[in-house]
Design a binder for these strands. Sequence first.
DNA 1: CTCAATAAGGTACTTCAGTATCTTAAATTT
DNA 2: AAATTTAAGATACTGAAGTACCTTATTGAG
Lengths: 183, 183
Amino acid sequence: MTIKSRRRGPLLENAILDAAWAELAVTGYEGLRMDAVAARAGTSKTVLYRRWPSRVELVLASLRKNSAAPAVAPDEGNLRDDVVAILTWLSDRYQSFPEIMRGIMVELPDVEGNITQSSVHFMTIAMDRAIVRGEIGPAMPSPRVWRVAMDLARYEMFVTRKPLQAEAIAELVDLIFMPLVSS
Amino acid sequence: MTIKSRRRGPLLENAILDAAWAELAVTGYEGLRMDAVAARAGTSKTVLYRRWPSRVELVLASLRKNSAAPAVAPDEGNLRDDVVAILTWLSDRYQSFPEIMRGIMVELPDVEGNITQSSVHFMTIAMDRAIVRGEIGPAMPSPRVWRVAMDLARYEMFVTRKPLQAEAIAELVDLIFMPLVSS
DNA sequence: CTCAATAAGGTACTTCAGTATCTTAAATTT
DNA sequence: AAATTTAAGATACTGAAGTACCTTATTGAG
């Protein structure tokens, strides 16, 4: 009783991405097996590798499909709380898929282009707003300065393999980020 | 003409660590094959795994044997230059074995215990000296603050997969570290 | 010196990412 | 509607980490 129908194109692609997502929920990133994804999607590994060159790329595609970044930057009315909100979002996102994010950071050549985009975008918006409000001086500080909280947050999550606690976020913002941008 | 002699204990162990070091020089971390190390050491994989539970542990042991941290903390006479020296050392060390350090960061559960020790040690010495000199206030700042330059340096090397340029080090120190500890 | 305990060396195995190759269904072209 | 092109699906393979298990050289205790 072989079913002879063959899905193609986006239909098949979506089925695979959903299968990967379901597998991720069960096994996490480390435990994800390409064979298992193929089996769940009712296809074979060959088909996966025709679309994505590696496991991490497939996982990333699945993540993109299933967990989009929020459309708008947080707007709490002041820079400090905007940055807390950005880091909290970052950490929550990481909380949901800590292994996935770690795997992507590790295996993808271009972390900057694949992982940091949204938070960089949100940070620049928050900084612009703060400048307009007059909260900080009129000149945009060096990227190293305005990225500092994000980068430290990501480093800490990477090393500890855990999401950030609220106190950690508060310390990053109040002991490091705010003093630097306010000076 | 089989040689029947069997090395044991430290003699064998050193031979393996040296073989691993030689392989690393040829292949880098990613390319290092356990079989190749075993072959070069004139033994077999089983013996390696009896001593080290994984490739990364063997590599780390080899790194420890072959590339010790400097015995004394840099002492440039002022905090700024001490921190530049520490970061420069960190980056040079990374320059020699970028892949190795990355592999260790990725695969070892305890980065803090295995990678950051020396630089943490040097940083606390530099901070203590600065306090004694009166360069900064008498209270030791939060670890998050005095670790900031090191952590950012390591994050940047991890993401870019390259050692830090001198300007990057200067920026980390002059735009971030010094303003925070001097305030 | 003999014998038991330890650990070295060898071989074969398992697992999984990624590749190669072939067959055939489905879409496309004429 | 037949021919051609595209890509899905199946199966088998390669390469490497790590494991299992067995044989035997070396150590060292009596």
